[in-house]
Amino acid sequence: MKITVERDDKGVVLVKIEGEVDMHTSPDVRNALLPYFKPDISGIVVDLSGVKYMDSSGIATMIEGLQWASKVKSRFVLAGMKEAVMDVFVLTNLNNVFEFSPDSEATFNDITGR
């Protein structure tokens, strides 16, 4: 799994994840997200377009991200999710909890006001 992070000067962070998010790799996702849940960050966009598989630990990590984001009042958006990954969210009745977007760049630009 590969994680890249891009941060702009307006406090918006784009976290791009590629590969499988499972019991072994989700702690890395958590560690990558953790530093950005603070008041000077206005939004975090997680680009999941390169994720083919996500298990329960990945979902739980995203839930934790959502909880952290709500504490610091920043937006937390899951973007570009493949249908197979979306199915897991639907299955666990969590599809109405998150903010989803089809395109990470458009969402990133939307939050930064570009």
Binding site: S56, T61, I63, T92
Partner: peptide, 15 residues
Amino acid sequence: HTNLSDSVIKTIIKI
């Protein structure tokens, strides 16, 4: 079997 944090484990168990 994993090194997941307690908070992640808690959420998985709820799911």
